[in-house]
Structures are given as C-alpha cells and as structure tokens.
C-alpha cells in the first residue's frame, strides 16, 4: 500500500508526514509525529480521549484519516500550555481541583473544554456536562472535572 505525503499545521507549526491511507489522524499524531498526548481509549468515537481541533472544530482524531489533515490546522493537547511551559488556566484548575486520577481521559477533556469555553465563556453546569458527554472518565466520577471547567471559565472571564 503506497503511502501519501501529507502537509499540515499542528499547534501552529508546519509539519509533514507519510501516511498509510487507512491510518487515522490519531495514529499519525502519535506514531509519525511523536505527539502522544492524544490517547486512544476506544478507537471508535465513543470516549473522546483522542479529541483534537481540526480547523478549529472539536473532533475525535480516531475518526479522521491522517490524509484528511492535508492543508488543515490541527490543535492538540501539546499546544495548550504556553511555549515556556506556563500552564493554561484549564490545566491549572484541573490540578487545583484534583480533576484527574489516572489521567488517561484528561488530554481529551482539556481539549474539549477549551473548545467549549471558546464558544461559550460562561457555561452552566448542564452545558458543561452535555458538551463533555462524549468524554468518558473511568476514575473521577466527573464532578471535579465539571467544577474545574466552571472555575477556569470564571478565571478566564475575569482575566479578559
């Protein structure tokens, strides 16, 4: 099976990789580009651990072909903190609220939460829960995650 040359932008940086046409964007990110922050929890769109933004739109990267990234903009968990390592408010609030245990779901939930706050800077608890319904967590029971997102939103509104 011949590989396809893909040129795309990941977290603002131009990148190129060779993709098997059946390979997912998740596999391309992890195995070709070494960006292992996005996780595979299911590979079938059910868990959200592989969440990334594709041209600004929240998607499951396990349900996108790597070759579909050609000419697009991909944003992953690796781009959330600033280049000098300063954590994004969401990341800080997740630590403060202890909103993670094993951490496997956390990258996907952070990326999804960032997309939510970009669209809706002041979400209700119900809105957070519906938005994150496709992000499964086996450990925390979700409460601390929801509180951390709402707290981060408040801080980000204050800072703006």
């Amino acid at each position: 099976m011949s590989k396809i040359h893909v040129t795309t932008t990941v977290n603002g940086d131009p990148v190129e990789f060779l993709a098997d046409p059946r390979e997912t964007l998740l596999d391309a990110l992890r195995d070709r580009l070494g960006l292992t922050g996005s996780k595979e929890g299911c590979g079938t769109g059910d868990c959200g651990a592989c969440s990334v933004l594709l041209d600004g739109r929240l998607v499951s990267s396990c349900l996108v072909l790597g070759v579909e990234a050609e000419g697009k903009r991909v944003d992953t968990i690796e781009g959330l903190a600033e280049a000098d390592g300063t954590l994004h408010p969401l990341q800080r609030k997740f630590l403060e609220h202890a909103a993670l245990q094993c951490g496997f779901c956390t990258p996907g939930i952070l990326v999804a939460s960032k997309a939510l706050l970009a669209k809706n800077p002041d979400p209700t608890e119900e809105e957070v829960r519906y938005w994150l319904a496709g992000n499964l967590c086996r450990c925390t029971g979700y409460d601390k995650i929801v509180r951390a997102v709402i707290d981060a939103a408040a801080e980000m509104r204050g800072a703006a």
Binding site: L54, R57, L58, V59, A112, G134
Partner: peptide, 9 residues
C-alpha cells in the same frame, strides 16, 4: 447524533 466530537464531523 453522538457527542460534540461526532457533531463536528
């Protein structure tokens, strides 16, 4: 249909 992520596609 599906989650926010599924809705994106």
């Amino acid at each position: 249909i599906g989650s926010t992520q599924v809705q994106g596609r």
